[in-house]
Nucleic acid binder design. Structure first.
Lengths: 333, 333
DNA sequence: TTGTATGCGTTATCAG
DNA sequence: CTGATAACGCATACAA
């Protein structure tokens, strides 16, 4: 708790004005080599570190980005965060973390909070805010990068997962394996991409001349809840393939199948989404629509950095497409 | 980008001094109901939010805690972070996130950085800093809570996982299932708890009159690398039970067993550590030494809060013991 | 109950 | 090349 030295203390100790200290701190050229060395010596000797707080009061820059996401336990977000953090770090920027648990109230209050901290920019993952309110907020919080939300507005950019493409590809894979009765587990309504995935699913069925049976389309209301029941429903309706909204849900589906004495992939093929590490270590390993999560984080961070610097143009909209990664949870019927 | 209003602007708009604004902002009682209402109206009307930065310059409080951890992708940390975040949030405190990737240099630079931000406290997870240097740093960064590191120093508290107890219990479980040749995969050297787990392993063997075979003790050098090879080594040495340092490594072990046509738990019993969600969704589900990770996060945060407030005493050392959670990856030999 | 003066630790501006 | 002065936005102490 040694009371911190300030720039004034150093100035006194070095026998120069505090302005000179500030100059060497900021590597301004207008200072003689002799005094520079002397000042650096004193700084070193006392281990002086300038207060970033005070500095940002006057520079109006905090070198800090607020990161808002629903749940850090979800590996989908954890891996993205990893990419974001790593990339920002390289640019000497720091991360303020807020997790919202998909709670609208917390979301709003965190956005306010971040704003009051004068962060340089924000990254918003699946905000529950409706379009109108979000749009209203953007002028105050820009620049901002949105994950999985396409809102065209000044000071906002979007990075989107190609959910429709993913739903299409997954379904097509099952069809090509000979499956004709294919169930889809649609994610919680808050996942905006759910609708898109479903569109892709329908498109694939139609393209292959298969009819769309509403009984085979089931929706999870609360994250990872009721999946066993929904799986039972699908099995009763004679599906031989199931496509799910993420890898964890796929794991639960496989558990449910096993409980009902249905073998995966023997009796039922299951396909996941995201491609998190779980998909590799599961048994059977999971066929999944793999997303380059770390790279997504990099893209998000790089876009935001460009917006903050304002020197180079940035992509207003980036689409990231998942790739089919074949595991042992699907096979020819 | 609407330029932000300051307390001065509001004062002018409300026709009072900025001091009065400050008073209603901080809910001081010494202000007449009439002016209070009037001021609040103006604040509301213009959506004024005070700058937390400026405020903390004078109060010397940032309401911010720095959280340093190796890897947010590791569900062990992710779940702990969740508990930390949630608990701090309730006390209106925020989290500054730094991930170090177990890199000593980044660790040191982040600790410095956090210090320059004037955070109110720090949470350090598995710092690579050696004891001497860490101890030297603590006066500058205290209060600080250490995860899995017991360093007795003023301004520092520790939350420890009962690794020896865990290693002991896991091994004992296998012995009680009739296993006599039990392998242990020791975690990367950076995991300080590895040594303790090994001690518990040895203790259990000795207590049951089993000899310690060095061939059955193998060490992972880099996280999750070479586990297949190490598992093969153990199998060649006729083990029927393997205890591992976390759930992910256990999953890899099971994969390796499967590749060698050894059934789990038929031929080999495998036991994990941590009890993250993976252990539940795996097939077979994993027997593991489950840790109350979320609660650990709560404990860490609550300890730090007590230290920051300085009004109530806090535990300098908290031990958290894992509980055996029986899954389907172990069975009677 | 309200207002005035002062300072938190830094950078920016302008003189010298 | 260097130093004095003002400013960033707020809270604290003291005065009215």
């Amino acid at each position: 708790m040694g009371k911190k030295l300030t720039i004034n203390d150093i100035a006194r100790l070095a026998g120069v004005s505090r302005q000179t200290i500030s100059r060497v701190l900021n590597e301004k050229e207008e200072v003689s080599e002799a005094t520079r060395k002397q000042v650096l010596r004193v700084i070193e000797e006392h281990g002086f570190q300038p207060s970033l707080q005070a500095r940002s009061m006057v520079t109006r820059k905090t070198n800090t980005v607020a990161l808002l996401l629903p749940d850090i336990k979800n590996p989908f977000f954890a891996e993205i965060v990893c990419g974001i953090e790593r990339t920002l770090r390289e640019k000497q920027m720091n991360v303020f973390l807020f997790t919202t648990d998909e709670d609208l109230e917390r979301e709003v209050s965190f956005i306010n909070l971040a704003q009051n901290y004068n962060v340089d920019g924000m990254i918003l993952c699946s905000p529950r805010l409706d379009d109108a309110n979000l749009r209203k907020l953007i002028p105050n919080i820009s620049p901002v990068v949105l994950l999985n939300r396409d809102l065209e507005a000044d000071g906002a950019a979007s990075v989107m997962v190609g959910a429709q493409h993913g739903g299409y590809t997954a379904t097509k894979h099952l069809i090509e394996q000979g499956h004709t009765r294919i169930g889809i587990i649609v994610g919680p309504p808050l996942a905006r991409s759910s609708v898109k995935r479903l569109e892709g699913y329908k498109k694939a069925l139609e393209e292959h001349g298969l009819s769309i049976d509403p009984e085979l389309i089931v929706t999870v209301e609360t994250p990872n809840e009721g999946i066993h029941r929904l799986t039972q429903h699908l099995i009763k309706n004679k599906v031989t393939g199931i496509t799910t909204y993420n890898d964890i849900s796929a794991a639960y589906v496989i558990q449910a199948c096993t409980e009902m004495n249905m073998n995966v992939p023997g009796d039922i093929s299951v396909i996941g989404f995201d491609g998190v590490i779980l998909s590799q270590v599961m048994n059977p390993s999971l066929t999944t629509m793999a997303l380059p999560l770390f790279e997504m984080g990099e893209t998000i961070a790089n876009t935001l950095i460009k917006m903050i610097k304002g020197t180079e143009p940035y992509e207003r909209l980036t689409n990231i497409y998942p790739l089919l990664k074949k595991g042992n949870s699907t096979r020819v019927k």
